[in-house]
Amino acid sequence: MKLSLKVNGKKIEKEVDDNTLLVSFIRENLNLTGTHVGCDTSQCGSCVVHVNGKSVKSCAMFAVDANGSEVTTIEGLEKDGKLHPVQESFKKHHGLQCGYCTPGMVMSSIDLLKSHKNPTEEEIRKGLEGNICRCTGYQNIVASVKGAIGKV
């Protein structure tokens, strides 16, 4: 099927197989490899991207289902060479170690901070339930999200 969508603000038209997952399309067709595949069973959240502003797991969505949508990946966050405030906060609070889960963590955190302007620690932890990190123990990830409150 011919796919027509916007990715990180850029209009894209490409022919894809109907069974292509959105994550494969992003990584293999568009070479945007910041979006990661971790578990591939929709548990870990390292593949989270935004589709029409909502965070979704791109390993559990067909690319053709994103036809006509606006997709934002981790590569689409920086503006004019400046990191997004949530990226900046992850850097400042050392919210990552190996970094594999980080793109998904950042994308989920942005969606969380859009729907909860001033989340409690409990709301942050609940909001990130769909993202697994095996390094940090989550303390600094939560600190990073807290540090970005009011900046999204």
């Binding site: 929709s42 989270v48 965070s55 979704v56 559990a60 339930e129 769909g130």
Partner: peptide, 9 residues
């Protein structure tokens, strides 16, 4: 149900 991303879909 599930997590935030699952609930969005």
């Amino acid at each position: 149900i599930g997590d935030a991303q699952v609930r969005n879909k």
